[in-house]
Design a protein around this nucleic acid. Sequence first.
RNA 1: GGUGGGAUGGCGAAGUGGUAACGCAGCGGUCUGCAAAACCGUUAUGCGCGGGUUCGAAUCCCGCUCCCACCUCCA
Length: 469
Amino acid sequence: MRLHNDLTRTLEPFTPLVPGRVTFYNCGPTVYDRIHIGNARNLVVADTLRRYLRYKGYQVTFVQNFTDVDDKIIRRARQLGIGERELADQMITEYFQDADALGVERADVHPRVTDHIPEIIEHIAALEALGFAYVIPGDGVYYRVTRKPDYGKLSNRNLAELQAGARVEVSAQKEHPMDFALWKFQKEDEIAWDSPWGKGRPGWHIECSVMARRYLGDTLDIHAGGEDLIFPHHENEIAQSEPVTGRPLARFWIHNGMLTVGGTKMSKSEGNFWYLRDVLQRYSGEVVRFYLLSAHYRKPLEWSDDLVAAAKSGLERLHNAVHNLRHLARTAERAEASDQERDLLADLIARFRQRFQEAMDDDLNTALAQAVLFDLATECNRRIGPGASRALAEEALALFRELGGVLGLLGSALAEEESLDAEIERLIALRQAARKARNFAEADRIRDQLRAMGIILEDTPTGVRWRRA
RNA sequence: GGUGGGAUGGCGAAGUGGUAACGCAGCGGUCUGCAAAACCGUUAUGCGCGGGUUCGAAUCCCGCUCCCACCUCCA
């Protein structure tokens, strides 16, 4: 598999440090609010990469943090009149509801900053001992960027360039404008912990350095996040980690592109964002996930209702193919596959599994992988019809399950049949009787009635088939 | 000012040297009692513009135009 490594800005063959095992850290949300659809893209991309690596046979250890203390959390908690921990707890609960809807699996560890204060202090002390930290009284402990000759290697810029375009407020007391806080001293009655430098709380970047190391070791195989985290967040993580461990923080840096609205980046500060929760009122998590994977992860992706609606139609095509196969499996008169069917199946599996893997191996080309699923659907629709054996239909379904599962899609369509309630069963039977009596007006009336109840009927050569709208 | 990314049919989106995937939308047809679903056909002689290299370029080179992101919190 090849992945685009943002550290080298090239496509590189991916191999983990320890054969067969992958350590993977994704920068998780700051839990001061519900996540928006842009956050969702990062979650889905990281989750999909994780699933694919597992599919390839790697044992993946996936860690994603919660940033549960920062300015925004403190401000929000005050507005609401609750504690920071309480707010964070609430938002973490909300987070899991949203992530679950998207089919994003739980990380192996979801560490929280406030549970790792001693390790953070220890790390800052280590930096200080190495001459990478200094105190600004009344302000905080700062990182000394000029002490790191390769500072800027991830974002591909040097201190002179950074300084030239700096929009950051330059504190008169900072040695360099790019120096950043490792520890912020307590102001007023802000939440704070004791430290050798005084009461305060961690700076933004230090948490990831510390928690990634705590759970995954000095060097991660993959560190992911949104591309807007490249600078300063990930640059600063590297700056903090590498002097202490003496090792590269991560071997592969993977960043997803931004979601856009009207061509410009979606962001909380701009206000042009949609909460995932609200989007999920209109579209299923699967539709959202499918849309988020419909473009390559490193490209910007426009978010609009029309585009998502079109994706929903496309996904329905895959669902229909699955429903067709399930109906065939259910109604098949023959259990065992014929020789001819076995050949067909072997051909389908060989071709589509390979094409799918080639797509995913090429820097996680999920758009192409989806196209493979569409082609598979067409092939199944064309070549597996009435008269097919149950074995053939079920094996084709297994292929959908395998490939769809890597993308985190099609789970519900493939799931065991929920039973219809008796009233609906009765209406379907009534309509069948009406059709048999060639009372089509009555049959159509019942079909419309069921349609209004969210049940779509389709008459096939092997009997009536229903699906949910 | 610096650093990157991008412009592909009506819409979205793959494709980085061999003659334009895939999805949506549209149109025509087959099937159907009618539908739905599905299938078949059809919709870019051309991939921002102008040059160049090559037997051959959306893909490489040069120039130009426009757009976006990052350099501040952001996924």
